[in-house]
Computed example of a mutant assay.
Amino acid sequence: MPQSPHAPLLTVSPSRPVADRGPALTSPRPTPTPAPAPTPAWATADPYSSALRSGRGPLFLRRADGWLLPLDVERWCARADRVDRDVLDRCEGVVLDVGCGPGRLVAELAARGRTVLGIDVSEAAVEHTVRLGGQALRRSVFEALPGEGRWDTVLLMDGNIGIGGDPRELLERVRQLLTPGGLLIAETAPVDIDERAHVHLTDAFEATGAPFPWARLGTPALLRHARGWARAGQWTADGRRFVALRTRSASNSAEAAKSTAVISSQRARKPSGESAVADR
């Protein structure tokens, strides 16, 4: 994909590590500044940091009822695989990887010469990403971020559509980060599920820290929550499922407003035959 025509989002001084501070930016379009988000309990949990530093599990999300969801630490800590690379081929312009983990996707895009930033609330994840040659910040997606409203692509991979436990709130936050007409690529659960729960991170021996909210969404559930987004594609590869969504561009919004006005005027004359077009 061609690079964005926007001015560069990231200008980093070599005198300080990327992990220690945010990139200096050209003046972004004014956007509301989100309130600082508290660091989730799992971000400093020993099992998570230990797994990322060792590159292997076991690591699980554990619900209160004892159910365990295994996390694929070995794949996260390896190089981007064929399925990952196919996703990255679809990215447009400058890319923000939300919940970048140990940074395999950030590193792969950086190696391609793409402008990319990873964010993660885990210090171990940010350190690992920087060691791979990527740029990363220790930051929550719900905190103020560089270049808000100017990212061309946002990634929510490896189940990160579950961040915060409220998919609609997360989608709205991603919308604020993207440029009009920008692209979100999200990896969904391999089953049809729409679940919210409080979970712990555990290595199967003990859970550390307070529980935190998480969500699991299959593709149908994500599409139900994505009101106001345009579908840009969905696909399955090696058992992993993905959805691409696009924000409404300024021209699309204007056209939608015009269409609504036309439909409203027609409804006054034809009350039995017209209905508004539902958002996809």
Rank of each mutant, 00 (worst) to 15 (best):
L217C: 04
F212T: 03
L201G: 03
A221V: 08
H198C: 06
V199P: 01
W214H: 04
D194I: 08
I185H: 13
E187F: 01
W214A: 06
R227W: 11
T219F: 06
R224D: 14
F205W: 13
T219Q: 14
T208F: 01
P213F: 10
P190M: 03
H200W: 13
A215P: 00
P190R: 06
H225K: 08
E187A: 04
H200F: 05
W214D: 01
I193L: 12
A197F: 10
T188A: 11
D192G: 15
A207E: 07
A207S: 15
P190H: 07
R227C: 03
P211E: 00
D192V: 09
D192W: 03
I185Q: 08
W214S: 04
T219P: 03
G182H: 13
T202D: 02
F212V: 02
A226P: 02
A204Y: 06
R224A: 14
I193P: 05
A204F: 11
A204T: 12
L184H: 15
V199H: 00
A197C: 08
P211Q: 05
T188Y: 06
L217W: 10
H198Q: 11
R224F: 13
A197H: 01
F205Y: 15
P211D: 04
V191N: 07
H225A: 11
H200R: 07
L183R: 11
T202P: 01
T202W: 01
G228D: 11
A204V: 11
L183C: 01
I193H: 03
L183Y: 15
E206F: 12
R227K: 12
L183T: 15
A215T: 06
L201K: 00
R196Q: 05
P180R: 04
R216Y: 10
H225D: 14
H225W: 11
A221T: 09
G218I: 03
V191W: 01
P211W: 01
A215F: 09
L184M: 14
F212I: 00
L222P: 05
G218H: 03
A210W: 04
D203I: 12
G209S: 04
A204H: 05
F205P: 04
E187N: 07
V191L: 07
A197K: 00
P213M: 03
D192R: 06
G181D: 12
